[in-house]
Design a binder for these strands. Structure first.
Lengths: 145, 145
DNA sequence: TATATTTATGAGACTCAATCTCACAATAAA
DNA sequence: TTTATTGTGAGATTGAGTCTCATAAATATA
C-alpha cells in the first residue's frame, strides 16, 4: 500500500469516529508504519520531537488507541509493563519469540497453530477477537555467548 | 500433594536460596495454593490481613518472585498492567481464554499446539523457557446477554 | 540456652508508564 | 469568515511495583 493510500484509509477511519485530521495523528501513524520495529510510545514521542514535530505524550498514547482499534497497529505486551506497538500495515499476522537475555523479538507464524486455536474456541463456544502467543527463552546469539 | 509435603518442599527451596523460613512466606504460599483463582498481589495482601496475618505489600511481591522461580506459582500477564499469579501445585499446564467483557479466565490445554510450539523453537534454534498463549474474545455467557 | 550474625519485614517514599485535566489551539461545518 | 466542536500539550495525577532502612525475627555459633 502506498503512503497516500494509507493516509486516505486513516482519514476514513478518523471520519468514521468523528475525529479530526490533525498533523500529529498522521505523523504518529507515519512514524510507526515506516519502521518494522516494536515501538514504545515514549520512543515514538522522542522520534517525532527530534524531527521537529510538535507532539505530546498524551497525544501519542491517545493516537495509539485509535491505530489499534482500526487495525493499523497491534499492541504487544511482553509483561515488563511497557506497551509496544507494531505496524499491521502490509504486515501479515505473526506471533513472537522473545529472548530473555537480550530482549530481541523474533516473529513466527504457524498455520496449524492458528487453526487449532480456532477449533479450541469452537469447542468452548468462545468468540475469538485476538490472541497473543509468546515464547520466552534464549535466542541462538545469546546461547553461543 | 498434602499440605505438609508442600511446606517441606517450599522449605527446601528456601534453604537452597539461603532464605529464612518465615510465617509470612508460608502464609502467602498457602493463600495462593488453597485457591484456584488467578490472584493479584493486592488481593493476597488483603486476604492475609483479613485473616489477621501481619504482612506487607513488599513481602507479598518479594515472595511471589520466589514462588515463581521455584515453580510453585505461575505469573500471568494479560496486558492490563496487573500481574496475576496462579498456583502450579498439583495443577497441570494450561493456557488461557480471556473474556474481554467480563474478565473471566477459562483454561485450555492442547497437546498438538504444545508440540508445534516446540518444533518452532527447534526451527529457530531457540531454547524455550516458558510461553504464554492467550486468546481474547467473548465467552458464551457474555454472548448470550 | 544465650548470644552473635545474618536475613526478613514493613511503612512509607519513590519510580515510571499511563491517564487525566483544562486552558488554549486547531479543525471543519455553516 | 464565523461558530461549534474536537484536539493538543504541559503538567498533575494515578497506581502497580520497587526500594529504603530501621527494627524484628530467624538461624548459626558458643
Amino acid at each position: 500500500m502506498d503512503k497516500e493510500q494509507l493516509k486516505e484509509n486513516f482519514a476514513s477511519a478518523l471520519k468514521q469516529e468523528n475525529l479530526k485530521r490533525t498533523p500529529q495523528r498522521f505523523a504518529i501513524l507515519e512514524e510507526l508504519v515506516s519502521s518494522d520495529e516494536h515501538r514504545e510510545c515514549t520512543d515514538i514521542y522522542f522520534a517525532l520531537r527530534n524531527q521537529g514535530i510538535s507532539v505530546s505524550r498524551a497525544t501519542v498514547y491517545r493516537t495509539m488507541d485509535i491505530l489499534v482499534k482500526y487495525d493499523f497497529a497491534r499492541r504487544l505486551d511482553i509483561g515488563d509493563g511497557i506497551a509496544r506497538y507494531e505496524s499491521k500495515v502490509g504486515i501479515s499476522h505473526h506471533d513472537h519469540l522473545i529472548c530473555l537475555e537480550c530482549g530481541k523479538i523474533i516473529e513466527f507464524l504457524n498455520r496449524d497453530i492458528e487453526s487449532l486455536q480456532q477449533s479450541i474456541c469452537n469447542d468452548f463456544d468462545f468468540d475469538m477477537i485476538r490472541h497473543t502467543h509468546q515464547i520466552f527463552g534464549v535466542c541462538p546469539d545469546c546461547k553461543s555467548k
